[in-house]
Design a binder for these strands. Structure first.
Length: 166
DNA sequence: GCCAACGTTGGC
DNA sequence: GCCAACGTTGGC
């Protein structure tokens, strides 16, 4: 039985809203509130349980990768889209045909030191992370695929315990 | 707080 | 279907 190869991702979160420490505390969390179709499609159509995720702190000082998470549940409708009290409420999301989806992610590891966006850029300049989406100018996508080699490189830069495997 | 980048909306 | 206006992201 052919199991799909593990894939690798980067997901952005503002640490003021939800940080790697918050994830460690709750151990698992629904990744709600994504309101971008491309990001939604990655979660809904491409993510699978066991995929590894670089947990990126955006709008932070400095911004960068703070740790590793793992996809813990495949996509299901984002309940905040149906919650009129939620800031993510979307009247156009029909419960019979949900517009917005989320996965669950679980805590894997917090890096001893953040791998800053600057460090990622330097590595990209040096050719080690060439083409990685997060270092591209104007790249705003909050859920993005990461090459396995790039993922492994970021782990190495962080001195992480987590390893990529087939 | 500024603003570049870029996605979405809505009038036509 | 075009595209101007508007809103959001996110680095700085």
């Amino acid at each position: 039985m052919a199991r799909r190869a593990r894939r690798y991702w980067l997901m952005k979160s503002e640490p003021e809203v939800f940080s790697i420490d918050d994830l460690e505390r709750v151990s698992s969390e629904g990744w709600d509130g994504v309101r971008n179709y491309q990001a939604r499609n990655f979660m809904r159509d491409e993510m699978a349980v066991g995929d590894l995720v670089l947990f990126y702190h955006s709008n932070a000082k400095p911004p960068g990768v703070a740790g590793v998470a793992r996809v813990a549940a495949e996509a299901y409708p984002d309940p905040t889209a149906f919650d009129t009290e939620s800031k993510y409420y979307d009247a156009k999301s029909d419960p019979e045909d949900p517009r917005w989806w989320q996965v669950d992610v679980e805590f894997v590891e917090k890096f001893s030191e953040l791998v800053s966006l600057d460090a990622l850029r330097e590595a990209a300049e040096a050719g080690a992370l060439e083409g990685m989406a997060v270092v591209q100018r104007g790249q705003r996508l909050s859920v993005q695929p990461v090459d396995r080699a790039h993922f492994a490189r970021v782990l190495r830069m962080a001195g992480a315990k987590t390893r990529v495997r087939a």
